[in-house]
Write a protein that binds this DNA or RNA. Structure first.
Length: 476
DNA sequence: GTTGCCGGGGT
DNA sequence: ACCCCGGCAAC
């Protein structure tokens, strides 16, 4: 061993030179991380500037219809009116965006999706139009009559599509079922007050990213029920996105709430109106794939109910023993339950996975924050999981041991606490918060062995310096 | 470019 | 536990 060390040391000079050269070489080429991150961010940033792709989907539909009508070589359709003009204005850009953001996009998807939402009349329009393409000549005879009907249909279709757009862009809170409205009335003040400290209470819990995950392509109510703008918001500074969470096929409950076919049009119109009024691409879409649940925080309980009233009653009767006063609430129950926002995926998977930090809810690729998912729950339950800052920084100045061999001390030896440098950091009860978590220790200003003795006297260095560790001899 | 030293690997 | 070193960041 000694011989090896001497041999190594004898060649240290050249080694260092080569090492230095290697360092220079290493610096020259772009580092993998730095080389990759900026483009990614730029890409995301660029993507963020774009419009909601939901509109692209709809525009695409519009274009398709337009082409078909053009193929008929016929008179202008009724869609050339105001609404169509607006849509057409962004048609070109929309196509480009569609190609970039929906490489696997299929028009058929839109057709099928829309067909599920549209009345039969509109759905027939698509199919009949395809037939028209094939039998255009034969249709010319009936063209005048056909277009009269077409115009009427187109008006309706345009209306429907506008609704689709609106539903894509935003899901208005007004689409709550009466049950939810009641629940909100009962709990709104309570929830808002208890959560007032959290800015995430009413913020969009999830910036649905899901559109790229394929769920939106799986047919069903796709474009309308999923907001797709969120998928590129994963890189946004906002921690509200949950990019890894796909937009789920809604559970039966939430689906019924938001997408009941029998739902009157005014509900959609209301959403559209709100969209038109506010015209904000960012805050749109309260995720209808999220479901608010209420979880009992009583120890060893964890019961989850869908309504605040229910959870209050549960707490009153089960935990507080107020069986006879179920209608009376002094607010004490508020302390024992919390509201949790659940992706209906999780709900569908079963309430057993309701842990607020359930993996199914976490794990955005680059945004670990989950506050948007569980606003107040984090306050209620994670405090026991908080990292103790004491474990973050190793003792430095407080436990300096001026011995060249401090670095060699085995923790098993009977030595003053902290003599082992960071190796015994866990024994520290207090340490200066001079080093933030994950940050390097500030570079020492004093001279180190290297400077004092020079490379030629490396034998005189302290062990730590020889090992390229923090100098143990000249400590700042 | 130099220096200090962290993080991690080898023995 | 000891030893070494790549690589990073402060200088």
């Amino acid at each position: 061993m000694q011989a090896r060390r001497l041999a190594k040391r004898s060649s240290m000079g050249s080694r260092r030179l080569s090492a230095a050269a290697a360092q220079v070489d290493a610096v020259r080429p772009p580092k993998p991380e730095s080389a990759w991150r900026p483009p990614r961010r730029e890409g995301s940033a660029a993507a963020l500037e774009e419009e909601d792709e939901d509109e692209d989907v709809v525009v695409e539909v519009e274009e398709e219809e337009e082409e078909e009508e053009g193929g008929l070589g016929s008179a202008p359709s009724a869609l050339t009116g105001h609404g169509k003009g607006l849509l057409r204005g962004s048609l070109k850009a929309a196509n480009i965006k569609r190609e970039m953001t929906f490489p696997a996009f299929q028009q058929e998807d839109v057709k099928s999706d829309i067909s599920q939402k549209l009345p039969d009349q509109q759905f027939l329009l698509f199919t009949t139009k395809e037939e028209d393409l094939k039998t255009a000549e034969t249709k010319k005879l009936n063209r005048a009559h056909e277009y009269e009907k077409e115009n009427t249909r187109s008006v309706c279709l345009l209306e429907q599509k506008r609704k689709v757009v609106s539903s894509n862009i935003d899901v208005p809170p007004a689409r709550k079922s009466s049950e939810e409205l009641d629940m909100d009335k009962v709990t709104a003040a309570m929830v808002l007050t208890s959560l007032s400290t959290s800015p995430l209470v009413r913020s969009p819990p999830v910036r649905p990213n899901e559109s790229l995950n394929g769920s939106w392509k799986e047919g069903g109510f796709v474009p309308s029920s999923t907001s797709s703008s969120g998928y590129w918001s994963w890189n946004a500074p906002s921690d509200q996105s949950n990019p890894s969470t796909p937009s789920p096929p809604l559970s039966a409950d939430s689906f019924k709430t938001f997408r009941t076919p029998s739902q009157p049009d005014d509900g959609i119109d209301e959403g559209e109106t709100s969209n038109l009024l506010f015209d904000e691409p960012i805050p749109r879409k309260r995720k209808n794939s999220m479901k608010v649940m209420f979880k009992c925080l009583w120890k060893n309980c964890g019961k989850v109910l869908s309504t605040a009233a229910g959870i209050q009653k549960h707490i009153r009767t089960i935990h507080l023993g107020r069986i006879g006063e179920s209608d009376y609430s002094d607010g004490e129950e508020d302390f024992y339950y919390t509201e949790i926002r659940l992706n209906t995926d999780s709900v569908a998977d079963g309430l057993s996975s309701l842990s607020p930090v359930s993996p199914s809810l976490a794990s955005p690729p680059s945004f670990p924050t989950q506050d948007a998912i569980r606003p107040e729950t984090s306050c209620a339950k994670t405090e026991t999981k908080l990292m103790t800052p004491l474990s973050r920084s190793a003792p430095t100045n407080l436990y300096l041991v001026h011995t060249d061999h401090a670095y060699q001390v085995s923790p098993t030896h009977n030595r003053p606490a902290g003599s082992g440098e960071q190796k015994q950091s866990h024994t520290v009860l207090s340490s200066p918060p001079r080093v933030a978590f994950g940050l390097r220790k500030p570079r020492g200003e004093g001279k180190k062995c290297r400077k004092v003795y020079g490379m030629e006297n490396r034998d005189m260095w302290c062990t730590a310096c020889r090992w390229k560790k923090a100098c143990q001899r000249f400590i700042d």
